[in-house]
């Protein structure tokens, strides 16, 4: 699963620390999320979507074939 968190965050001119504080997670979580190393819970995905006033599908891209290969 890919995501556009880094792109969207930079477009909004927000630092990782600021986003982390707003979502009540650590900066490392935001970093891992942006690198694609960590898949967030549905709660955090909703928090992110609400923070940016977007839908989850606009932020997270589900790639069915790649997911099934794992």
């Amino acid at each position: 699963m890919k995501n556009r968190v880094e792109e969207i965050r930079k477009r909004h001119g927000i630092k990782q620390e600021e986003l982390a504080a707003a979502l009540e997670v650590t900066r490392q979580t935001i970093g891992s999320l942006e690198n694609g190393r960590y898949k967030p819970s549905i709660t955090l995905a909703f928090k992110l979507a609400r923070y940016f006033h977007m839908s989850i599908e606009d932020i997270f891209i589900y790639e069915e074939e790649k997911e099934n290969e794992k």
Binding site: A20, E24, V25, T26, T29, S32, Y38, S41, T43, L44
Partner: peptide, 9 residues
Amino acid sequence: EIGKKDERN
């Protein structure tokens, strides 16, 4: 507190 509750941690 955030570090303790952080879902990744």
